[in-house]
Design a binder for these strands. Structure first.
Lengths: 147, 147
DNA sequence: TCTTATTTAATAATTGTTACAAATTTAAAA
DNA sequence: TTTTAAATTTGTAACAATTATTAAATAAGA
């Protein structure tokens, strides 16, 4: 099953009409490795769907989040970013390159989950968690430090 | 030493001229418990400094972040929020109330720090980390679940 | 005090996002 | 298949948050 077929299936699963626009937008986000902005999704889907509108991309992404097909990522500059990957996973924010990289680690998830279970936070029904790591990406070639 | 004096000292420490505006803005953020937006800081300082300009608040907050006097918090809706608390600490995002609450836990910090040390992430110089917990705030009175 | 550089206020401009009305598409009914 | 109604999309206008600009005010040094 290709990505569009998969998107179509997901859409009908959550009760959304599987239009061409929705299919390509969903597929685009799910295929993206780099947490795209609405603008980035727009540019990507526009290549094969020149008549698609930016407003549709914005709307559709919001609908997808509401239906739990994708999730939002919080970016440093406050701009919207989306993530086709659901479930708990972590993000590395590069302070220099401004990239947001996925960082998946089963051990870390277990560690945190176990902690949260133990340390019952009062009056809070925990849905999701994510460790945000802020760091500087080092170009190894330049990483010759003389002390 | 009062908060303004403290702010003044911090400002000169990082090499910023300790103007009235900067002092009150820094003090306002540091005293805030609830991760204020620029607008919120503006409203707060305006009470005693009616002539202060919103633009100054925006600029000044950015300068403070750059000088590491405060830090930014990533809010769900994409609006800017600031945090007078430095160092590693965690945030609880309430999906229903939209609040961002601090969650400080020494044990959690140690747990994560120890993990990150062990699991050396390649080509990344880690600066900071923060666990983002997403959950629903439960009104305990309503929390009578019948299964 | 005078001079110069820095900072601020006020406002204009910009940008990302949302709202809207008309046009199009889809799905269902006839 | 055509008709009809509802949902969706487009294109654009409006909006709100943020940034840039410029003149005035302030602070620091000579």
């Amino acid at each position: 099953m290709n990505t569009l077929e998969f998107a179509k299936q997901k859409l009908t699963e959550v009760g959304l009409k599987a239009t061409q626009q929705r299919m390509v937008i969903l597929a685009a986000v799910q295929q993206s490795k780099n947490h795209p902005s609405p603008e980035a999704v727009y540019e990507k889907v526009r290549v094969n769907n020149p008549s698609i509108s930016l407003g549709t991309v914005y709307n559709t992404l919001d609908i997808f989040v509401e239906k739990d097909l994708i999730q939002t990522v919080l970016a440093k500059n406050g701009l919207k970013r989306y993530d086709g990957r659901l479930g708990n996973h972590n993000h590395i924010h590069c302070v220099n390159t401004n990239e947001i990289l996925d960082f998946e680690d089963e051990e870390l998830n277990d560690l945190v989950l176990e902690f949260l279970k133990r340390k019952k936070i009062e009056n809070l029904d925990i849905r999701k968690f994510s460790l945000h790591i802020q760091g500087e990406k080092i170009d190894e070639k330049k990483n010759i430090k003389i002390h």
